[in-house]
Design a protein around this nucleic acid. Structure first.
Lengths: 228, 228, 228, 228
DNA sequence: TATGAATGAGCTTTCATTCAT
DNA sequence: CATGAATGAAAGCTCATTCAT
């Protein structure tokens, strides 16, 4: 939806503007974001902005599209689960995508979370494409597959579980980033092959364990809990 | 921090203004909230607003205090866990509190979530009281207790688990509200004794199960997952 | 012009309000003075103000009347000049009055100067009484007397001289106050019998000398100045 | 301190705004001056004002700079005194500068007097340049020179005299303007060569006489005055 | 196409004044 | 008479948007 002039810009300038906009939308909702701030930070003329975009919302939608595009790039590498064990490998990959996205585009990731906050799941149907922007669709699919493969406990409410997985997947990656930075005492460097970072491996594995097996020590705990 | 004049108002007028402000802050950050909108919706003169509050932030802080106060009312009814089983009953109560808060004050609940969004967990220390506004503290305590009572699996990373529980507890209640409204086709009536609503019971129980036992059907799954 | 209610107040309260108003009008013109500031500083209710005065200008006029009244008290002690020497003693007394007024009511004195600034001499006819508020009238009278008594040089332009004396008399006293405070290192205590303070005596005498004899060392200087 | 945009304006528009501002600050202190009045009188949009200036104070400081700049233009033509007689010629020139400034920029002159009123001599150090805006410095210098050249009576308190000369020089010019307008019945036209206007010549000469020789007819008067 | 000055609606905030208690 | 809440006009200032160059 940006005007043609925007796409005729040199890549470096276009990306400059995009990055400045991402910064703005990471810290501000569409309502409180400021055209002034963007043109000042990007060092472009006020008038130029309106030669690239209809208005602020136009730019915002473009940034949201960036979110989708860049995430799809990562998702495209994801194979479908083929057998029993792959059910949870698939879940692991879904989480790895979120982590990779957070590590590669932490600010863009925050833009996405902000969008999801302002447009809660039940109303998050993209009016243009008709698709959900949030990851729920994928988690529903994952759970359906898992039920078919007999990997998911039958008593699980799949809609609830999909929601929980969505929330957890959305909020796990910033926690990971934060904690890694805290533990190492320095900002995290991006390494797309996240599975090779032992820190990431450990935490992701622990999360997977929690999701797969819960936090109770004794598997009997459930029965006891309700029998009491 | 509001001025005395605000507290001298009749209860009905004070609550009118509070409710209008809650509406505003549920849908807007402090940055994008508008004094104009509030005075118009509350039907008060613009000048009156400034006889009640220093400025918008003053009112915002007051609303945040309402969040804390009203949640504390609910929390105050919560007994500490005494024995084995009580560990998870305690967790259940923590979730029930969030549910009760959401059902009783759904908009105020959204104000709180918005605040937590804008002030992420790692920086959410209330500068005035020094306390965390988010529930993490409680979840850390819960997990510590659980570990002591040998109810929590030893391999669980408690900081991660506390974070996950915090996120889930924060986002479960709006899902519950949404889903109940959807299923019944009408807005949910508040009933503080949430445990008596079968819908709530079922969903909360399912969430508890997921948290306690995970979603994997076979307890062996974890070993297989990593052995592969 | 204040309402009767104002004059029915206890003396202590009335003077409190007057003093607060004097402070306000010493530092602000009528345009920039603030009713809010006055009621806050005086600790009276906003509504009370409007039960005492029509509006701010009403109070301002009252304060201007205080200026006149209090100065007249001092002036009333001034005898008319009777012989040769008394011409300059009279001038000395005029200056002493200004000094006494400054020492006794420094802030009121500043109110008067501010008034004279905003209402320059040529337009300073008091619309109510038809009299001039500034001292010019007295200096004109003094000079007329001096000419009659053959004490004033005949070449002196009396209108100019009256103006110069007016300006000097108006601005000498704050200089005196400032310099005394500076020299002694502490605020000046009021002593109505100003002639007994050696500092005041010295400076006033020096000013009298300057006015009487000018600053040139050689009386011939004037002739040389123009003959050249 | 005004923004670049202001200096990029056409000279005619810039001067229009400056003149309107001078009018405003001639009649109002910074406190009571009004952005609204200025934009209305200048016929510019409110938003434009804030593209030229940070705020009202920014414009005010610019106008104060105009005062300094334009006066310096006139002062720059002033030679230092070289011999006996030149002492008083120097004083005469100082007064002529004030007169010329008043005649050429009467409203700007009033802005300066207002500034000096609000920022009395003892605290009138310009916080930016560290220089005094008022002419006192020059009068102190003049008197020092005069003492060195044996032109100033030794009994004169030079600090007092400098103050008196400062006050008189500041207030003489508006008097002159006023009186000339009154006497001739029409507004005074500016003529930079003020020494050629007989009216100005006469009054300035008379003032010089008063300053040099005082107003007493008999040089003996001083001795008699104090001997009595 | 790039620029940045121009614009006025709209924002937050202050203020003098009124008025019910 | 004292009080202080209520009011809305008007202030200073910001902003998205337009437009001439």
């Amino acid at each position: 939806m940006p005007k043609d002039t925007f796409f005729h810009l040199s890549q470096v300038k276009r990306q400059l503007i995009e990055n400045v906009a991402i910064e703005e939308f990471a810290d501000n909702s569409l309502q409180s974001a400021s055209v002034n701030a963007i043109v000042n930070n990007a060092g472009i003329a006020k008038g130029s902005f309106y030669q690239y975009f209809e208005n602020l919302e136009d730019l915002y939608k473009h940034i949201l599209k960036l979110v989708k595009d860049r995430k799809l790039e990562l998702i495209s590498t994801l194979p479908l689960p083929a057998n029993n064990l792959d059910t949870f490998r698939y879940l692991q990959r879904l989480l790895q995508i979120e982590i990779a996205f957070e590590l590669k585009y932490p600010r863009l990731s925050r833009v996405e979370r902000r969008y999801n906050f302002e447009n809660p799941v039940n109303s998050s149907i993209d009016p243009e494409t008709g698709q959900r922007l949030s990851g729920d669709g994928r988690f529903h699919a994952f759970l359906s597959q898992g039920v078919l493969h007999d990997d998911i406990a039958t008593w699980v409410d799949t809609d609830l579980a999909a929601y929980v997985l969505g929330v957890v997947s959305q909020w796990f990656s910033p926690y990971l980033l934060e904690r890694m930075g805290q533990d190492s005492g320095k900002p995290v460097e991006f390494n797309l092959d996240v599975s090779h970072d032992p820190h990431v491996q450990d935490l992701l594995q622990n999360l997977m364990d929690i999701l797969m097996a819960g936090i109770a020590r004794d598997p009997q705990i459930r029965k006891d809990f309700y029998s009491k």
